[in-house]
Computed example of a mutant assay.
Amino acid sequence: MPAPKNVLKQAMAEGRLLRGLWLALGSEPVTEIAGRAGFDWCLVDGEHAPFDPAMIRRQLITLENTGTPAVVRAPGNQDWILKQVLDVGAQTIMVPMVNSAEEARAAVRACLYPPEGIRGDGGYTMRASGYGAVPGYASSANAEICVIVQAETRAALDNLAEIAAVEGVDCVLFGPADLAADLGYRDNPTAPEFWEEIKRGIGVIRAAGKAAGIFAPPDRNAEMVAAGVTFLSLGADAALMTATLGALARSET
C-alpha cells in the first residue's frame, strides 16, 4: 500500500488556481468549518501561531475529515522540525525565510527519504505511515511530498531564479509583510514600486516552471492572479473573525 496521493501537489503541477485560508486559531471547530467551506487548501500556521506537533496532528485529522487538503507551515527550516511535521501526517509543507538555493535544497532534503534526502524513518511510530498500516509508505512517500518555500527578504529576491530552479521545490510563496520590511517599505507596504518587485518575482518563478504563491491584501488578489500567481491565500481565520465580530459589534441593529 503506497502513501496517499497528494491531490494538492498534482493540482499545483497542473497550474490550477488554488485558493485557500490560513489557520492560526488552533480551534478544531473553526478548522472544521473552514475545511467544509470549499477552499482548495487550508494552511496550519506553525510559524506564528501557537502550534506544537500534537496540535498540528489534531488540525490535520480535522481537515482530513472534511476532505480539504492541508498545508503546514513549519516554524523554521531545520531538518528535525520538518521531520516532525511530516511524521504527524503533513504531505504539503511550507518553509519560511528561505533566502538561497542552498537553503531551499536543505528544505527539500529534509523532507525526502534517502537516497534523495535525509529524512529519518520513524516506521511504526509515525501517524504518516498509519502507525505501520501503510507498509509501503517509505518507498512511496517522496513522490507525494510537496514543498513550498517562502521568499521574504531582499536576499531571496536576489536569489529567486536559483531558488525556484531547485529540484523538489514545487512553489515559491511571497510573504509581503516581511518582504516589505526588508526592502524598506515596512511603513509604506502599498507602494507601487514594491508590488512591481513582487510581480517581477512572480514572473521569475513561473519562468522556472514552478507555482507562484502569495498572501496579499484582498484588494491585490486579482492583480496577483493576473501576474501569474496560482497559489493564493484569501485570508486568515483570526483576521476574518476580528473583522466580522468587530463589524457586528458596531452595527446599529
Rank of each mutant, 00 (worst) to 15 (best):
M1L: 10
M1Y: 03
K5D: 09
N6Q: 06
M12T: 07
L17R: 14
R19D: 03
G20R: 08
L21T: 03
L21H: 07
W22K: 01
W22P: 01
G26A: 14
V30F: 14
V30I: 14
E32P: 04
I33R: 01
A34Q: 12
R36K: 08
G38F: 09
F39C: 07
D45R: 04
A49E: 10
M55S: 15
R57I: 02
L60F: 12
I61L: 13
L63D: 12
E64Q: 15
P69D: 10
V72L: 11
V72H: 06
R73N: 07
A74T: 07
A74W: 02
N77S: 07
W80K: 06
I81V: 14
I81T: 12
Q84Y: 03
L86H: 00
G89W: 07
G89T: 06
M97W: 02
N99I: 10
S100E: 07
A101Q: 05
E103M: 03
V108M: 02
A110F: 04
L112R: 14
Y113T: 01
P114N: 06
G122S: 03
G122H: 01
G122I: 03
A128D: 04
G130Q: 07
G130L: 04
Y131C: 02
Y131I: 05
G132W: 00
A133L: 01
V134S: 05
P135L: 00
Y137T: 01
S139M: 01
N142P: 01
A143H: 06
C146H: 00
I148H: 04
Q150P: 10
E152D: 15
A155W: 03
L157C: 08
D158P: 04
A161V: 15
A164P: 10
E167I: 03
E167P: 03
C171H: 08
L173N: 03
L173V: 15
A181L: 14
A181M: 15
A181W: 14
D182Y: 12
G184D: 09
Y185C: 09
Y185E: 02
R186M: 13
D187T: 15
D187W: 09
P189L: 10
E196F: 04
E197L: 13
E197I: 09
R200I: 12
R200E: 09
G203M: 05
V204W: 06
A208T: 11
A208P: 01
G209F: 07
K210R: 05
A212S: 09
A212F: 13
G213P: 00
F215W: 13
F215T: 07
A216C: 10
D219P: 12
D219F: 12
N221M: 10
N221L: 11
A222G: 04
A222K: 15
E223P: 14
E223N: 09
A226W: 05
V229L: 10
F231I: 04
L232Q: 13
L232F: 04
L232N: 05
L234M: 12
L234E: 10
L234H: 11
A236L: 10
A236N: 09
A238R: 09
A238T: 07
A239M: 14
L240S: 11
T244A: 15
T244P: 03
T253G: 09
